[in-house]
């Protein structure tokens, strides 16, 4: 057990440490997020009711667009310098190391966006008591996005136009996340029951949790062959 847990923790710690030292990627994602969320109201005008209505869609799209460029870079750097090769020949199963990588990516890419979301929510006139629930949706949906992104990044590893391919693979797969996420927050706004949407999003997360790490590991093994 320790032979699996310790290397996974080490992978997570290394990623966090690296991103603390070079926060550029995280900050650029964050600034995209804030930019999208501020520019749209400016363009739409100050109709408070209208803004509140489109807020859920806006926030979800901003999260997706802000995280996509970072997903694309998830493996390219460690593939180039050979860390990925060492992961493949580690006695620890590659699937578990990829799960660690996904958790690290969630902490680095999604968590800052989730933490910034309340500010945006207030700007869009969302009620305070809804914010906590919205954060839950974003956190869970964000995990889905990372797991889809990891699979896509691994599949396109080594291709020259990887950015384009990642987008092509990620966008259709993340449609359900967008649909359930937006529907959930909208239901929250209108006071309808949102438990169903949350459960569907949770089910999607569980399916991806089983699917994504092994698929990512297999794709990387192929690309390193």
């Amino acid at each position: 057990m320790r032979a699996i847990l310790n290397p996974c923790l080490a992978v997570i710690m290394a990623d966090i440490r690296a991103s603390l030292r070079y926060p550029g990627d995280v900050l650029s994602g964050l600034s995209y997020f804030i930019m999208i969320a501020t520019l749209v109201p400016l363009g739409l005008g100050a109709d408070q009711a209208e803004l509140a209505r489109i807020a859920p869609v806006m926030i979800w799209i901003a999260v997706m667009l802000a995280s996509l460029p970072q997903m694309d870079r998830l493996f390219s750097r460690i593939a180039k310098d050979g860390v990925l090769e060492q992961m493949l020949i580690s006695p620890t199963p590659m699937t578990m190391l990829m799960l660690a990588k996904i958790i690290a990516a969630w902490l680095i890419i999604i968590l800052p966006l989730v933490l910034a979301a309340p500010v945006i929510g207030i700007m869009f006139g969302l009620a305070m008591d809804m914010l906590a629930m919205m954060l839950c949706f974003l956190a869970i949906g964000g995990l889905c996005l990372v797991m889809i992104g990891a699979m896509a990044a691994a599949l396109v590893l080594g291709s020259r136009q990887s950015g384009v391919f990642t987008a092509i693979i990620v966008l259709p797969l993340s449609m359900p996340v967008l649909i359930f996420g937006v529907a959930g927050i909208s239901a929250l706004q209108s006071g309808a029951d949102m438990a169903g949407h949350m459960m569907l999003l949770g089910a999607l997360t569980l399916i991806l949790l089983v699917l994504s790490p092994p698929v990512t590991a297999a794709a990387i093994r192929f690309s390193e062959e």
Partner: peptide, 26 residues
């Protein structure tokens, strides 16, 4: 295995990178 690529984690310092490697080597 020490391959062509050096497996130094670009954004870490030398000690942190080797610590990660040691952990992956179990």
């Amino acid at each position: 295995l020490v391959g062509h690529r050096n497996a130094g984690f670009e954004h870490l310092n030398v000690i942190s990178s080797l610590r990660l490697m040691a952990s992956m080597m179990n």
